[in-house]
């Protein structure tokens, strides 16, 4: 059987070296996420500002939010002191070592914590002790997928604890809400979930919805929707319409920025669908605060020469 891996293909363990080019790029990815809100979110918040009534608390809140975003970016300081839990989603070409990549990421997270791009957020549930380093057992979460491109793609989301707390999962049918196993039922439970969150998840939120799957995969698909850009619609026109309707209806609830009342309760809703078991029908909501901190880093990697390209961030 011909080997796809030529001998000496991964020449350089230097790929994984601390302060090497990949390490520096990952550190920059973390800094960028923590300090610089993605342009699509900033634009959406500016649009939300223009919809709120002049002189209202809602408008003042969004004004403060936007000036904070500017201050964080210019001073390279965390937008929010809760720099969240880190989840990395990685695509890598054949020949790259998961073990070494994980070690590199752990190093970069610790360095980012020392540089105050991240707050140490890793606490032992039993002893209550904070590791202080930003890393711990299976933390940060890293998901690996191999692909056939000559590129390493690293997506990172910093998800705050306040908005994680208001996430919720429903099993359909839900009799109290009159929610059946239908698109209408899905919409009803999403409305209920966002209503329950009130301002506690730092509205206006970005709502990731997972439809189908099991208890775990349903929530996972919901969270992954948060990488979609504001305004992006599901490729399935039926789901796309549901997303559009949900945004419009959520913004009729009157919860508003930080729950002070007002128009903008949700900046967008993204639904993802995966198959379910005949007996189950889960709808999971991954609520993200207005400070949706996520970027995708792409870097070309020529495994024959062991050379890395320039990292780009989107």
């Amino acid at each position: 059987m011909p080997s796809l891996v030529k001998s000496g293909a991964v020449k350089s363990d230097s790929l994984y070296a601390p302060h090497g080019s990949l390490y520096d790029s990952v550190l920059e990815l973390i800094r960028l996420c923590s300090t610089t809100l993605p342009p699509d979110i900033v634009k959406s918040l500016s649009n939300a500002l223009s919809t709120e009534e002049g002189g209202s608390i809602a408008k003042n809140v969004l004004d403060s939010v936007l000036s904070n975003i500017e201050m964080a970016k210019s001073g390279s300081t965390p937008i929010c002191q809760d720099t969240g839990s880190l989840a990395f989603y990685i695509h890598y070409p054949l020949g790259v070592s998961q073990i070494k990549l994980r070690a590199l990421i752990n190093e970069a997270v610790q360095e980012a914590t020392k540089k105050q791009y991240l707050r140490p957020n890793v606490v032992d549930p039993i002893s209550g002790k904070n590791t202080g380093t930003g890393v711990g057992l299976e933390t940060p979460h890293i998901h690996f997928d191999e692909w056939d491109k000559d590129e390493i793609e690293i997506r990172l989301i910093l998800k705050g604890g306040g908005c994680e707390n208001v996430g919720i999962q429903y099993a359909l049918p839900h009799s109290d809400l009159g929610a059946s196993r239908s698109n209408d039922g899905v919409q009803k439970v999403v409305m209920d979930g966002v209503h329950k969150a009130q301002g506690m998840g730092c509205a206006p939120g970005i709502i990731g919805v997972g439809i189908g799957g099991d208890r775990i995969t349903s929530m996972e698909i919901a969270k992954r929707q948060l990488f979609r850009k504001i305004g992006n619609r599901n490729h399935d026109p039926v789901i796309a319409e549901m997303e559009t309707e949900l945004v419009a209806n959520l913004n009729k609830l009157g919860i508003g920025p930080m729950g002070f009342g007002g128009i903008s309760t949700a900046l967008d809703v993204f639904c993802g669908v995966i198959p379910r078991h005949p007996a189950t029908y889960y709808v999971s909501i991954s609520y993200n605060c207005w400070a949706l901190r996520r970027y995708t880093m792409t870097i070309s990697y020529d495994r024959d020469n062991g050379t890395l390209g320039e990292a780009s961030y989107d």
């Binding site: 403060s64 000036s67 904070n68 201050m71 964080a72 937008i79 929010c80 306040g162 730092c202 605060c289």
Partner: peptide, 13 residues
């Protein structure tokens, strides 16, 4: 007293 959630850098000032 309600402060603006997420306004970490501004409040630190």
């Amino acid at each position: 007293m309600h402060a603006v959630g997420g306004a970490g850098s501004a409040i630190a000032a």
